[in-house]
């Protein structure tokens, strides 16, 4: 059966390029490029693979900013059919993001599968799948490493700390994916540029966002408590290192 799939995509600052101020320890966010979050790419790949195998349609939704068109073009080049960007993202706040996304998901029915990353690489909250499940009233199967579809029944292999759990459920389902599920395809730059020209991207502004009262006291690089001992003399280093190893082995 063809599946109607919603994939939730997050665009994040490229934290691999992030530097912190050597004096204050504060992150230097200015001019930091944005990129599609890694697990979002796994989510897109999972959705597109299901579409390629069984037919259907993949709708991508981003809660982001004007610049999020770059991530949507990339999603199009990977095989996403339709894209909606909701602008107005201010900061990582799962309660707000969940509400914005849930509202948009409700507007694009019907959806059999809602696929998203399990935890994003910048803020790591991991709250979105559970919150969406509650708002939408759709069961959640999280941290999927394998998705197998058979008409309206979907079997998901879920990786937990204790091992894998194979769980089956009827659509609609929310599935959050782990990085192990697939290797996202890498569309060529030309494909990404062409994708934006071919298909329109719907952009809407989020309405009535109400961010909770959270006050940032500090946001700094953690202080390193390393002793930074450097041995230049091998003869001195070996006994010291052996001592440390023996101590740990006790």
């Amino acid at each position: 059966m063809p599946y109607s799939i919603v994939v939730l995509i997050k665009q994040i600052p490229d934290i691999d390029q992030l530097r912190t101020d050597p004096n204050t320890g504060e992150p230097q966010m200015q001019n930091l490029p944005l990129r599609t979050e890694n697990l979002s790419k796994n989510a897109i790949e999972a959705a597109v693979q299901i579409k390629e195998k069984y037919g259907g349609k993949v709708t991508g939704i981003i809660f982001g900013r004007e610049q999020s068109t770059a991530s949507m073009k990339e999603a199009y080049a990977m095989g996403v059919d339709d894209g909606i960007i909701v602008t107005g993202y201010q900061r990582s706040e799962p309660s707000v993001t969940a509400r914005v996304l849930a509202e948009k998901i409700k507007q694009v029915p019907p959806h059999d599968l809602i696929i998203l990353g399990n935890q994003s690489a910048d803020s790591y909250t991991g709250m979105l799948p559970g919150r969406l499940s509650r708002i939408l009233g759709i069961p959640l199967v999280g941290n999927a490493v394998k998705i197998e579809c058979s008409s309206d029944q979907v079997k998901v292999t879920r990786a937990t700390e204790e091992g894998n759990m194979v769980v089956q459920g009827k659509v609609p389902l929310i599935i959050s994916v782990a990085q192990e599920i697939n290797t996202p395809r890498l569309p060529a730059v030309l494909q990404i540029m062409a994708a934006g020209g071919r298909k329109p991207i719907r952009t809407e502004a989020a309405q009535n966002l109400s961010y909770p009262d959270v006050r940032v006291i500090s946001n700094r690089a953690p202080k390193s408590e390393r002793k930074r001992i450097i041995y230049e003399d091998m003869g001195k280093a070996v006994p010291e290192i052996v001592k440390v190893i023996k101590e740990a082995m006790r």
Binding site: A98, R134, I135, G142
Partner: peptide
Amino acid sequence: VLGREVAGFVSEDMGLTSVT
């Protein structure tokens, strides 16, 4: 994996802010 799912669900259910 399960703890984060349950925490998200409960936060939304109770309308509470979460810090993770």
